[in-house]
Amino acid sequence: MNIFKSSIVLLTTTSLLAVAGEKIDQTLPIGDVTSVEVENLRGKIKIVGQSVDSVHVVGELDDEAEGFTFEQNGSVMLIKVEMPRHLENNWSRQETNLEITLPKNVNVSFSGVSSDIVLSELDADASVGTVSGNVAIKNISKRLEVSSVSGDIDAHQIGNLTHLSSVSGNIDTSGASGSLFVKSVSGDIEAKSTAPIVEAKNVSGEMVLSLNSVEDLMMSTVSGDIDADLSLDNNGQIKLSSVSGDFHLNFLNDVQAIFRLRASAGGDLINRLTSVKAKEDKYGPSSRLSFETGNASSRVSGSTVSGNIVLTHK
């Protein structure tokens, strides 16, 4: 009996050790699964939606992987690379590299640390969270939420409700058609969008926005500069806020709005839409710019401490 127990322990240990660097080629039927969750510490994961009725995983595991989970639990399918708590600092190691194909209409979530993620071709919701890995997204038709600390985010041809957030990584996005929310601390943001509702925030990074007709636009910065090309719909609104960062708003249409702008500590308010000039307050360094264009059906309001706000027409 003791010999039998010893054999079982030996076989189990051998199986666990064999997982490290193992090649994977596994398939499970989608059944009644509505969402797929993927977890990977480091390496690269590629997820592609296709017209299929199964989930297929192919590739190679990390040299230090301790296990691989690929299983269904109710309506959720889990794909997870098990890693040790403490990793060896070995630059020659093979990191996980997996490609996952799944049905287009299944929701997908991914979490990682230093794992890059490529995600495309989904007619479903998707969420991605990573620390230092880069994120590349394309053709996601529904809700999309992406957060990163230092990794870059590239998201194109995305859905009707999109949230993109980074700390020091850059964000490059295009194709959002519903609502777009982008936020960064020190990373730069470049966004091209037809979304009518847009919110863009940063602290010290630069932002370049190319927007179509917006109904509701909110932009805020601390010390970063924001350049925006846009059209403002009738009955729409724009709200601006900065400390020392500059705004340059370039209107692509004959904007018809009430403008109310204020600088409280010496920032310049420059109006190139009409002949109205900013007026300095009688006491202190603050100034105000108030005027109207067309039927004044929309509203543009903003404040800055020491930054500049420039209004132009293309």
Results as ranks from 00 to 15, higher is better:
179 S>H: 05
241 S>E: 12
313 H>C: 09
109 S>R: 15
144 L>W: 13
252 L>N: 08
141 S>L: 15
67 G>P: 02
47 I>G: 00
162 T>C: 14
81 V>T: 11
246 D>S: 11
151 G>R: 15
106 V>S: 12
52 V>W: 05
126 A>H: 06
7 S>C: 00
225 D>C: 01
14 T>F: 05
251 F>Y: 09
240 L>R: 05
67 G>F: 06
229 D>Q: 11
63 D>M: 09
121 E>H: 09
129 G>R: 12
242 S>N: 07
278 A>H: 03
49 G>L: 13
97 N>Q: 14
284 G>E: 11
232 L>S: 02
144 L>C: 09
156 H>Q: 13
171 I>Q: 02
232 L>M: 09
229 D>V: 07
118 V>D: 04
192 K>P: 00
164 L>M: 08
18 A>G: 00
249 L>T: 01
295 N>A: 15
280 E>T: 13
6 S>E: 03
161 L>I: 08
312 T>K: 14
255 V>G: 01
198 V>I: 10
71 E>V: 14
144 L>R: 10
7 S>Y: 01
79 I>M: 08
148 S>H: 10
3 I>D: 00
108 V>Q: 07
266 G>D: 05
52 V>S: 04
20 A>D: 02
117 I>L: 12
89 N>M: 14
72 Q>H: 07
160 N>M: 13
32 D>W: 06
144 L>S: 06
263 A>H: 03
237 Q>H: 12
29 P>E: 07
96 T>S: 13
164 L>W: 05
153 I>R: 05
243 V>H: 03
8 I>F: 03
211 L>E: 06
144 L>H: 09
276 V>H: 01
267 G>C: 08
201 K>A: 02
92 S>Y: 10
244 S>M: 10
29 P>V: 08
234 N>G: 14
178 G>K: 06
53 D>Y: 09
143 R>D: 12
121 E>N: 13
310 V>S: 09
121 E>M: 08
299 R>E: 15
121 E>F: 04
290 S>G: 04
305 V>K: 09
314 K>D: 14
14 T>M: 07
204 S>Q: 06
29 P>K: 13
37 E>L: 14
152 D>S: 14
186 S>A: 07
66 E>Y: 00
186 S>L: 12
259 F>G: 01
98 L>W: 10
147 S>E: 15
289 L>E: 06
124 A>Q: 05
152 D>I: 13
177 S>W: 05
16 L>N: 00
240 L>M: 07
253 N>D: 08
33 V>G: 00
255 V>P: 00
174 S>F: 11
190 E>T: 12
166 S>P: 07
139 N>W: 05
214 V>T: 06
311 L>Q: 04
246 D>Q: 03
52 V>Q: 08
112 G>N: 09
108 V>D: 05
31 G>S: 15
218 M>N: 02
126 A>Y: 07
162 T>E: 09
252 L>E: 10
74 G>Y: 08
134 N>Y: 07
23 K>H: 01
215 E>Q: 13
76 V>M: 11
131 V>Y: 02
152 D>Y: 11
38 V>E: 03
41 L>A: 04
149 V>C: 11
83 M>F: 02
109 S>T: 15
167 V>Q: 04
99 E>R: 15
115 S>N: 13
91 W>S: 07
